[in-house]
Amino acid sequence: MPVTIATESVLSDNGRALIEASEAALLAVYPPEECFSFSAEELATKSTQFLVARRAGAPVGCVALVDQGRYGEVKRLYVDPGQRGRGIGRALMEELEGAARDIGLGLLRLETGAALAAAVQLYRRMGYADCAPFGGYPDIASNLFMQKRIGILLREDYRLAQLSRA
């Protein structure tokens, strides 16, 4: 059965349920003080695109793209445990990368946990590499910071062009 991916409201019942499931999955691995996830309300901004994967109409996964200006931040990649191993996480990330390119973002960053082995493996297979801490996240042993260039940094180039004209 094919999976469809579309932008949806994070504040919908399905959006909230996916965020809650994502949070529960994180808290099963990390103590609350080591979880740096965004709530549905924190993701409900004009600078965030929330993507939902559906199979047979039922929500089975999600990911959020937060436009941070000079880069996009990947938040809340989650796939229902019963649906894992079917390429849904990769499909969500590919859709997110396309959405980032569409709005002129050439760099994606994410903060994840080293203990989330399947997620880290997916990110590495997709070309994400370790990077320095960013975004005010604490540099603690459980954190892993990654990034991937996905195109030309249009926004950064535009700002530099504006500065050189001044």
Rank of each mutant, 00 (worst) to 15 (best):
E20T: 06
A91E: 12
I140P: 00
D13W: 05
V3M: 12
R54T: 14
A40W: 07
A28L: 09
M1R: 06
F134T: 03
S142L: 11
L18M: 13
R165Q: 15
A56H: 12
F38W: 00
R90V: 02
M146V: 09
A161L: 13
Q83E: 15
G106R: 08
V63R: 09
S37D: 09
G82T: 11
P31E: 12
C62G: 01
Y78P: 01
L43E: 01
M1D: 01
P138T: 05
A129F: 00
V120R: 08
A53M: 11
Q83F: 11
R70D: 03
L96Q: 07
A58Q: 14
T112H: 08
P59S: 06
A99Q: 13
D139N: 14
A99L: 03
A64D: 07
G98L: 13
I88Y: 02
G72W: 03
P32G: 09
V10L: 04
I5T: 06
G104N: 14
R70C: 03
A6V: 05
A25L: 05
E94Y: 03
A161E: 11
D139L: 07
I152W: 00
L144Y: 04
R159A: 09
F36W: 09
G127T: 11
A56M: 01
L27H: 14
R165C: 06
M93E: 08
G69T: 08
R54A: 07
Y71T: 01
C35E: 04
L26Y: 10
V60L: 06
E73G: 11
D13S: 14
Q162W: 10
G106M: 09
R70L: 15
D67F: 02
S9T: 09
I88K: 05
R55S: 15
R84P: 02
G69R: 08
L96C: 06
D80N: 12
